[in-house]
Amino acid sequence: MLECKASLRVKSDSLSLEEIVYNLGEPTKGFSKGQEFGKVKKKRPHTQWMLTTDEESSMQEAIDQLLCFYLERSINSDLKAKASIDIFCMISSDNGQGSFTIDSSLYEKLLKAGLKITFDFYSD
């Protein structure tokens, strides 16, 4: 089985989570720089806001949803200057096989958004 997840990630060393939420709305997951996590109470090195798509969608649909979300907003220039914004995709296969297709309309949206996209592959 092929599992695909995609997230719009916003990372910043200087903005607070509240400032990012003000621009983009509530995240699926988020944390602030300096926030403690884990058993040893490590501190987060940066603020991160993530909007993750539904696991039921295909990779094409997931990326398209995130790009539409991003392109429909008037992204504040301060946010663009003080944050790193990208799309992160995780693909996991329990049998070592699987594929997905991205069509040209998605490439065009990605270029218009000016975002990087990262694919992270896991297979058993």
Rank of each mutant, 00 (worst) to 15 (best):
E19P: 00
E55Y: 06
K82C: 07
I75Y: 02
D64G: 03
Y22R: 15
R44I: 05
C89G: 08
G98T: 07
E72D: 13
M50I: 06
L8H: 06
E72W: 00
A83N: 06
S12Q: 04
D103T: 13
I117S: 08
G25C: 03
D120C: 11
I75E: 02
F31H: 14
V10F: 02
Q48E: 15
I102H: 09
S123R: 13
K43S: 12
T53E: 10
I87V: 14
T52W: 02
Y107G: 15
L8D: 04
S104W: 08
S12Y: 01
L111P: 01
M59P: 04
Y22N: 14
A6G: 13
I85T: 02
Y122L: 05
A62D: 05
S92W: 09
K29F: 14
L17V: 04
G25A: 06
E26D: 13
S57V: 14
T47A: 04
K82I: 00
S93P: 06
M59N: 05
L67M: 07
I87H: 04
M50R: 15
L106G: 03
G114P: 01
Q35T: 10
L15K: 10
H46L: 12
C68R: 13
K41C: 09
F37A: 06
G30S: 08
K39M: 11
L17N: 06
F100Q: 04
S7L: 02
L71T: 07
S93F: 04
D86Q: 06
I75D: 02
